[in-house]
């Protein structure tokens, strides 16, 4: 049995004559916490958009949760969870309403949503705040709830985009404990970030520089390989060359598909 939840081979995306993602190849195993790193403009976002089925690759192959991102993008979307630091929950809805809303979006039955809600309230100790507007909650709470909401439909993989930026150190660690638990239960966790302290928590990390994966290993081995004290130093040694959006004068808009 193949134990890989993500399989990427020579995945490439070009915008005009600019190659945002240049033939990247990697695999991610079931239950692995995989860090996907790169400087601004290195191509992380473009690569992740292909993996979550919202951007078509120019060439190469990628299978996510057993589905081809090129031909079965909709199936990919059903099998993944996604959480971004920038947008995760609706501030104008209560915690309960957010759970119901996202449960509905993910196609869960009313009964299942109800079960999941009770489970979540119990696990996170939300009893006192379940009827409060999400906008009024501290950032740390929002992020913990957002992470749980992204797991409502028991996805095979959850994609996290800079999940703990700006969060206080204690809450950040509670968040990582939730991630460890999810991974322990078999969910694959794919973390995109340029916060190097987040990278230290991953089982393996890849570092993208100018559209290519220049390094891929456990944080420990990368630190040994680059004779660096921490992942920040590893990153600095690898990503010294500025990104293409900084060196040439032509603006490249990678937001367009």
């Amino acid at each position: 049995m193949n134990n890989n939840v993500i399989e990427v081979k020579n995945l490439t995306k070009t915008f005009g004559d600019f190659t945002a993602v240049n033939a990247i190849t990697f695999e991610v195993k079931k239950g692995e916490i995989f860090g996907f790193l790169g400087a601004n403009g290195a191509g992380k976002t473009t690569a992740m958009k292909m993996l979550i089925g919202i951007s078509k690759p120019t060439s190469g192959k990628a299978q996510v949760a057993g589905f081809d991102v090129f031909t079965h993008a909709e199936d990919v979307k059903q099998s993944i969870g996604y959480m971004s630091q920038k947008f995760a929950l609706y501030d104008d809805l209560t915690v309960k309403e957010n759970i119901t809303f996202f449960g509905g979006i993910y196609g869960l039955s009313r009964k299942r949503i109800e079960e999941k809600r009770c489970e979540l309230v119990e696990d996170l100790g939300l009893k006192d705040i379940v009827n409060q507007l999400v906008g009024a909650l501290p950032l740390g709470w929002k992020q913990k709830i957002a992470f749980s909401v992204s797991l409502l439909h028991d996805p095979k993989i959850v994609f996290l985009d800079e999940p703990t930026g700006g969060v206080d150190p204690i809450t950040r660690r509670q968040f990582w404990e939730m991630i460890y638990k999810a991974a322990h239960q078999g969910t694959t966790v794919f973390v995109t970030t340029h916060y190097m302290d987040e990278a230290e928590y991953c089982d393996r990390v890849s570092i993208m520089v100018n559209g290519k994966i220049e390094a891929l290993d456990t944080p420990k081995k990368l630190k040994e390989q680059f004779r660096a004290e921490n992942m920040n130093d590893v990153f600095l040694k690898l990503a010294r060359s500025p990104s293409p959006t900084l060196t040439n004068g032509n603006e490249v808009n990678t937001d367009k598909n």
Partner: peptide
């Protein structure tokens, strides 16, 4: 430096 990559 919030939101800025390690090199910058």
């Amino acid at each position: 430096t919030t939101g800025v990559d390690p090199v910058s």
